[in-house]
Design a protein around this nucleic acid. Structure first.
Length: 688
DNA sequence: GGGAATGCGTTTTTT
DNA sequence: ACGCATTCCC
């Protein structure tokens, strides 16, 4: 009985994969995919073009290994997001059985975190180290910088966030600070000594405060693997099969870690696409792909070139875009799918008109039976969709937004997690610094002073009620903080009790700080719900830093709807696919972004955007953009389009201007009501 | 006068 | 939402 139920569930969720019994699993794959999926031992490089069944191949390989008797615990699957890993293991479980869920899967950072929790003492850290995110790091470096900067320099000195970027770049691109400065910021070369000094101080403070930043997680894992061969051998004995997804977006440090893990047994499979490398700003390099055969001379390379996602006209455009790439790529995708609709190139008068076109078309497509979950709007930067989001709200189209400032990066969530972090690690300056500034009368200077005092007293919160601070106007609030911190440190409280305590206090403090406090309180409730999934505070806080819930914004009215449109940055849309894809703002200065340092990467990003679409692709270009001070400026066409030979023949041009009553839509659908007049009413009376 | 609050203009991508 | 400049307060 149970077995039958399961087959039904399988066929409902993943029809092609569930067909057939276990022994002909590989019949679902083409020869190249099969070669990769049935590889067991040894080193393998899989170069997989967009939509070529890369994920499918990895899923089948996991299934193949487990089905063949390999213990799932001995497989390590490193992916770009936690979501990707979970999805793959879910699918593998459907192919074989639930054992596949016991595979260790996640991001490099989450894997590093879990290993380091067990071995941190070997490296001089305590086991409950806390993780600081980018803005905490900027705060900490800012303090060290101001201590350094006191001699009132003549010249400009790099800002704290510039310094943090610099230090991160040094680690992730494996270059010296001097080299980076020479190449990118020669104006700061004179300050090299001071910049290096602050870096050392930063490293020392983090260690003293039992804290790691994102880069430390990787650096310390690598250190552990190199300096403690016993640990490395133990890990290699546990994880006998290493798999790395999106290898083109890993950096040298990550490649080093994977290689160290595989050094004993040599069982490693990396999968990637050089054409889709879009994270070079964070040190990723497709050189990792090119150099893999050098690192593992016995490795075999498999090329996946057949595309199963997009129709030929979409793929043709994608291939043409890539022709302009400086690097010569070894593959050219082809597709046998049905479909002859060319991508649309849509000229609209301005940004609001662009938003109207997108909404009109989405509604029309939905009428035609395309579900919202099969549509996405992509843009180069998260804020490019701001106008559209208003329009979506007005038209009651439910959506979720991915990319940009995340839920966990919003100020109020960070405040609460800082408060909780203090109770876990009272010597972390960054959290104290943040929490103290909640109170009226305390800004960066005073917060820094008090935070440093507390840390010098080994994290004793009694400093908050010391005589030194008596009589200040914020003394009462500090006393309240003291009380809360003391309560939070009670070992007997569980996570939900601690969170309740923290939220109760925070809600009274936040009222004066934010004028939209009510909305933020709803987020805090959401945080409490998320926390229910965790056993202890440490795991909760680590995940909040490393594997946060990934969507930013849900339309509040439609929260309960399970059908929603995706609004996303191109970066966050990586690896996903939809029937219909809209790409906003194909203008010079938007996409590619005006401060692009690497034009090649912008082109690859455009390639990624195009290849997300299965069937319908809309490239939008407003003729006017809202510029500074509300004035309009001419929106030049994106050079990414202008450079494509024969773009006009490859696409179908649509001109959409206000007053157009009858849209030319993909499938000839028309509107039953007039959304434009509803729009005017909504505009007039506002949102509420 | 040091430091906090307020107002204004701008906005790349992210573990 | 954040950096930056200006204004305001202790």
């Amino acid at each position: 009985m149970a077995r039958v139920d399961k087959v039904e569930v399988m066929s409902e969720h993943a029809p092609p994969e569930a067909v057939g019994s276990k022994h002909d699993l590989m019949d679902d794959l083409n020869p190249a995919q099969r070669t990769a999926a049935t590889a067991t031992t040894g080193a393998h490089l899989v170069i997989a073009g967009a939509g070529s069944g890369k994920t499918r191949t990895l899923v089948y390989r996991v299934a193949h290994l487990v089905h063949g008797g390999v213990a799932p615990e001995s497989i390590l699957l490193l992916t770009f997001t936690r979501r990707a890993a979970q999805e793959m293991l879910r699918r593998a479980a459907q192919l074989v059985d639930e054992r596949c869920r016991r595979v260790t899967g996640g991001t490099y950072h989450s894997f590093a975190n879990s290993v380091l929790r067990r071995h941190a003492q070997l490296l001089g850290y305590g086991p409950s180290f806390t993780i600081i995110d980018r803005s905490d790091a900027v705060d900490l470096v800012g303090m060290l910088r101001s201590a350094e900067d006191n001699a009132s320099r003549q010249r400009r000195f790099p800002r704290a966030d510039t310094l943090v970027n610099l230090y991160s770049k040094r680690i992730n691109t494996h270059r010296s600070l001097k080299e980076i400065l020479e190449e990118e910021m020669p104006q700061f070369l004179d300050d090299l000594a001071a910049i290096e000094k602050i870096e050392k101080a930063y490293a020392r403070r983090k260690l003293e405060q039992n804290t790691m930043d994102y880069d430390d997680l990787l650096v310390q894992l690598r250190r552990l693997l190199i300096e403690h061969p016993g640990v490395r051998k133990k890990l290699a004995a546990t994880f006998r099969y290493i798999m790395v997804d999106e290898y083109q977006d890993t950096n040298r440090l990550q490649a080093h870690i994977a290689a160290l893990l595989a050094a004993d047994h040599g069982n490693i499979m990396v999968v990637g696409d050089d054409a889709q490398s879009i994270y070079s700003f964070r040190g990723a390099s497709f050189r990792n792909i090119i150099d893999f055969p050098k690192l593992f001379p016995e490795s075999r390379t498999t090329l996946l070139e057949q595309n199963y996602r997009s129709t030929p006209p979409i793929l043709e455009l994608a291939n043409r875009v890539l022709e302009k790439a400086r690097e010569k790529f070894s593959k050219r995708l082809f597709s046998h799918l049905e479909g002859s609709q060319k991508p649309f190139f849509v000229r609209t008068t301005d940004d609001p008109t662009q938003a109207r076109f997108v909404c009109d078309t989405i509604l029309a497509l939905r009428e035609d039976g395309v579900p919202l979950s099969e549509m996405a709007v992509l843009s180069r930067a998260a804020w490019h969709s701001n106008v559209l989001e208003l329009e979506l709200g007005n038209r009651n189209i439910p959506f979720r937004k991915f990319g940009g400032i995340r839920f966990v990066e919003s100020a109020h969530i960070k405040d609460v997690s800082a408060l909780l972090k203090i109770s876990l690690n009272p010597i972390e300056v960054a959290s104290w610094f943040r929490v103290l500034q909640l109170f009226e009368g305390i800004g960066p200077k005073i917060a820094q002073r008090i935070a440093q005092d507390v840390v010098e007293e080994d994290g004793d919160p009694a400093v908050l009620v010391s005589t030194k601070l008596e009589g200040r106007r914020y003394a009462g609030q500090l006393a309240a903080l003291y009380k809360v911190i003391s309560q939070l440190r009670d070992e007997k409280l569980d996570l939900s009790q601690k969170l309740e305590l923290a939220l109760k206090a925070y809600k009274t403090w936040m009222i004066h700080k934010y004028d939209d406090a009510v909305r933020r309180q709803q987020d805090l409730q959401a945080l409490a719900v998320v926390a229910k999934r965790y056993e202890d505070l440490e795991a909760f806080l680590s995940d909040l830093a490393i594997d946060p819930p990934d969507f930013v914004h849900t339309d509040p009215h439609e929260d309960s709807e399970d059908e929603w449109l995706t609004v996303s940055t191109v970066h966050s849309g990586k690896g996903l696919e939809w029937q219909a894809v809209f790409v906003l703002h194909m203008n010079a200065g938007r996409f590619p972004t005006f401060n692009a340092s690497d034009y090649e990467e912008e082109r690859r990003l455009f390639y990624v955007a195009i290849t997300r679409s299965k069937r319908l692709l809309y490239l939008l270009k407003p003729e006017e953009l809202t510029g500074r001070g509300g004035f309009y400026e001419i929106g030049e066409i994106s050079p990414l389009i202008a450079e494509v030979d024969g773009f006009a023949e490859l696409t179908e041009e649509v001109v959409f201007a206000p007053g157009d009553s009858d849209l030319e839509l993909a499938d000839g659908a028309s509107e039953s009501s007039d959304p434009a007049s509803l729009q005017r009413i909504l505009d007039y009376f506002g949102d509420n």
